[in-house]
Structures are given as structure tokens and as C-alpha cells.
């Protein structure tokens, strides 16, 4: 009864352990935005700057992102760093498909964003023709600061729920839709039995 008495006397400050209240949704968004792991998808020049961002000077660890995952199954963000050739495009899409939802894509550099200065037969003119892109980082190559800005922007979008809302409306994203479970309506489910 002591706790109740303290709370009655001092309000929430009377609690021995503090707590916060919030919606689970917000908590998840906050957690997602602060531990989104990037996939190592280095392609060209931008990959060098991406690695430099992970280096000691720019310290990507500040954003909970220093763990570059080689396996797409463990990654949340794909940073498409560099030009995507026609030959690489199917590979890129496959890797994207192998990533778990929710997943996000940063298109790093002009080549990934629009083909850049190489408007020719060999390059995919914009990686957004293959995968949905959430944030574009401009530059050739974007410096580590630009990439960090893109990452912070993405984190804000994740935290505000903006991206997921937009995807719900447009039906965009990876295009993965689970069919609704078709259960036989006559079967009654009883708790405690199998």
C-alpha cells in the first residue's frame, strides 16, 4: 500500500521507478529509426564514400548504423551506392526482395538516382525504376556529410511514420501483400486445445 500512498502524496514523482507512457507504435518507430542496419550494397565510387562515412572521422555509429550487414536478411536499409548497370539490376532487385520488411532504400549519388552523367545503354537510369526509393542523396559522389544528412532525413521519416503512411495510401513499397487468411468459418477455435 506504500506505493499508492506515495503516489497519493507526491503524484508520479512518488514512484520508486519512473516510467513513460506512449503508444506502442511510436515506441516501435523510435526503435526502428535508431537501429536501422544498412546492407553493404557498395557498387562504385559512392561505396568508397559510404565506407568513409563508417570510418572514424564521420562515425556512423552515432546513428546506430555502424553494423553493415552483408546478408540482406539482417539489413533494414539498402544504401544503393553507385551506378547500377543493366547486368546488376536483377541482382539488386533480388537482394532487395530478400530483405525483411520494413525496409528502406537510400539512393546514394546521382548515378543511382538518375543515371547521372552516364545516360547510355549500359546503365539503369535511376534505381527507382527497380526498387522504391525513400531518400535521394545528391552528389557525385555525395560526401559523407551528404550521406549523413540523407540518413538523418530517413530516420526522421521513419520516426514520424510518414513513410509507412504513404506506402499504405499508394500501395507502394516492396509490393508484398499477404493474402488474407481464409479460415473455414465453421471451425470454432477453443482456447487451450489444439
Amino acid at each position: 500500500m506504500g506505493i499508492v500512498a506515495d503516489v497519493q502524496a507526491d503524484g508520479l514523482a512518488g514512484l520508486e521507478h519512473n516510467f513513460l507512457t506512449g503508444r506502442v507504435e511510436d515506441l516501435i518507430r523510435w526503435a526502428r529509426s535508431h537501429s536501422s542496419w544498412p546492407a553493404t550494397f557498395g557498387l562504385a565510387c559512392c561505396a568508397i564514400e559510404m565506407m568513409a562515412t563508417g570510418g572514424p572521422h564521420y562515425d556512423l555509429a552515432r546513428f546506430g548504423m555502424e553494423v553493415f550487414r552483408a546478408s540482406p536478411r539482417q539489413a533494414d536499409i539498402m544504401i544503393v551506392a553507385g551506378r547500377v548497370s543493366q547486368k546488376m539490376a536483377p541482382v539488386l532487385r533480388q537482394i532487395y526482395d530478400q530483405m525483411m520488411e520494413p525496409k528502406w532504400v537510400i539512393s546514394m549519388g546521382v548515378c543511382a538516382s538518375s543515371g547521372g552523367m552516364f545516360n547510355n545503354y549500359a546503365l539503369v537510369q535511376g534505381v527507382d525504376t527497380i526498387v522504391p526509393v525513400d531518400v535521394y542523396a545528391p552528389g557525385c559522389p555525395p560526401g559523407p556529410e551528404t550521406l549523413l544528412q540523407a540518413i538523418v532525413t530517413l530516420h526522421e521519416l521513419i520516426e514520424s511514420g510518414e513513410i509507412m503512411r504513404r506506402r499504405d495510401v499508394t500501395g507502394a513499397g516492396a509490393g508484398v501483400h499477404l493474402d488474407e487468411l481464409q479460415l473455414p468459418t465453421s471451425t470454432a477455435l477453443t482456447i487451450g486445445t489444439r
Binding site: 557498387l43 562504385a44 553507385g82 551506378r83 548497370s85 543493366q86 547486368k87 546488376m88 541482382v91 552523367m117 552516364f118 547510355n120 545503354y121 549500359a122 546503365l123
Partner: peptide
């Protein structure tokens, strides 16, 4: 070939001054 960018072809379309880029 996974990073083939067609630079030699693009190089034929750029002037000598742009070629260095």
C-alpha cells in the same frame, strides 16, 4: 561486367575538356 558503365562510348560523346570528368 556488373559495373559496366559504357564510359568508352560516353567518352566519344564528350569533348576533350569534358573527357576528364
Amino acid at each position: 561486367g556488373y559495373l559496366h558503365t559504357g564510359m568508352e562510348k560516353t567518352g566519344e560523346e564528350l569533348t576533350y575538356l569534358q573527357g576528364a570528368t
